[in-house]
């Protein structure tokens, strides 16, 4: 787009984030649920837990099961044969996280208890 072509824009602003060594706790119910989600792909796939901007309280949790990514910058946590990755950029936000799973029709699913969160939204997906 010629409106912004040429000079005048800065280089992308660097994002400086604090990196800490991550420790998380995964309850037996959550381990079982993660294993079930990964299924037979447990040798090749990993669970990535991340935090992204947004939600009622400033950050949103995200959990995805994907083939082990080639990107660098992840910290690896092995729990009972399951590989969990947390990116360095999210390490300060997620260190100390307790991952639980509730098996109920209403309000069931994964639950996060995050000691870094000053507040959380009612649905439990957002923290700040």
């Amino acid at each position: 787009m010629s409106l912004i072509e040429g000079t005048g824009f800065s280089l992308p602003i660097a994002t400086i984030t604090e990196r800490v060594d991550v420790n998380i706790e995964v309850t037996p119910a959550a381990r079982s649920a993660v294993k079930s989600a990964i299924g037979e792909q447990i040798e090749t796939h990993v669970l990535i837990i991340s935090a992204k901007a947004g939600g009622c309280s400033g950050y949103l949790y995200d959990m995805v099961v994907v083939e082990r990514p080639e990107e660098e910058g992840f910290q690896t946590i092995n729990i009972d044969g399951v590989t969990i990755l947390i990116h360095d950029n999210d390490s300060a936000l997620l260190n100390g996280l307790k991952l639980d799973f509730k098996d109920s029709l209403m309000g069931g699913g994964f639950h996060m208890d995050n000691p870094n969160a000053d507040r959380a939204c009612g649905c439990g997906q957002s923290f700040g």
Partner: peptide, 22 residues
């Protein structure tokens, strides 16, 4: 500052200043 925090590992986002460019 707000826009540069919480950029997920798997998203392509860059924030630049355009002050004076337009």
């Amino acid at each position: 500052k707000t826009l540069t925090r919480g950029i997920p590992w798997n998203e392509e986002i860059e924030i630049s200043s355009g002050d004076g460019a337009v």
